[in-house]
Simulated scan of single mutants.
Amino acid sequence: MSKAILVLEDGRTFTGEAFGAIGETFGEAVFTTGMTGYQETLTDPSFHRQVVVQTAPHIGNTGVNDEDDESDRIWVAGYVVRDPSREASNWRSTGELEDRLKREGVVGIAGIDTRALTRHLRERGAMRVGISSVDTDHLALLAKVRQSPEMAGADLSAEVSTPTAYTVEAVGDKRYTVAALDLGIKRNVARRLAARGVTTHIMPVSSTLDDLLAVNPDAVFFSPGPGDPATADHPVALAREVMRRGIPLFGICFGSQILGRALGFGTYKLGYGHRGINQPVMDRTTGKVEVTSHNHGFAVDAPLDMVVDTDFGRVEVSHVCLNDNVVEGLRALDVPAFTVQYHPEAAAGTHDADYLFDRFVELVEFAEGKR
Rank of each mutant, 00 (worst) to 15 (best):
W91K: 15
A110Y: 02
R100V: 00
I74K: 04
D99K: 12
D113M: 08
G108D: 08
I109Q: 02
I109R: 07
I74N: 13
V107K: 07
I112P: 09
D113W: 01
R73I: 00
G111A: 10
D99R: 06
D113T: 01
T114H: 05
G78R: 14
W91C: 13
A88P: 03
V107F: 10
S85E: 11
R92S: 04
V106D: 08
R92I: 04
W91V: 15
D66I: 10
A116H: 05
V107L: 14
V81R: 01
E98Y: 05
V81I: 14
D113S: 05
E98L: 01
T114F: 07
D99H: 07
R100S: 07
W91N: 14
E98G: 05
V80P: 00
N90G: 08
W75K: 01
L97I: 13
E67Q: 13
V76T: 13
R103M: 06
E87D: 13
Y79S: 08
T118R: 14
R100Y: 06
A88C: 11
I112A: 10
I109H: 05
L97N: 12
E87N: 15
E87V: 14
G95M: 07
S85I: 01
N90C: 09
D72N: 07
G111D: 07
L117Y: 07
S89Y: 08
R103H: 10
D69T: 09
E67P: 00
R86M: 12
R92P: 02
G105W: 04
L117M: 11
Y79C: 06
T114L: 06
E87G: 10
D99L: 10
N90P: 02
W91I: 15
G105I: 09
D69M: 13
L117H: 03
Y79F: 15
D113R: 00
T118H: 09
S93H: 04
V80A: 02
D113F: 04
T114P: 03
I109S: 06
I112N: 07
E87C: 00
D69A: 13
G111P: 11
E98V: 11
A88N: 08
P84L: 06
I112Y: 09
G95L: 02
S93W: 12
S93N: 11
A88Y: 08
V106E: 04
T118W: 06
R82G: 09
R73A: 00
D72L: 08
R73N: 05
S89H: 12
D113Q: 03
E87F: 14
S71E: 05
V107H: 15
S85M: 01
I74V: 11
S93G: 14
D83G: 06
L117W: 07
S71I: 02
D69G: 10
A77F: 02
S85G: 15
R86C: 04
R115Q: 11
T118E: 05
R82V: 03
R103V: 04
A110N: 00
S89N: 04
S89E: 12
A77T: 12
A110R: 08
L97S: 13
K102R: 09
N90A: 14
R73T: 03
I112E: 04
E96H: 11
R103T: 09
N90S: 10
V107P: 10
R103N: 11
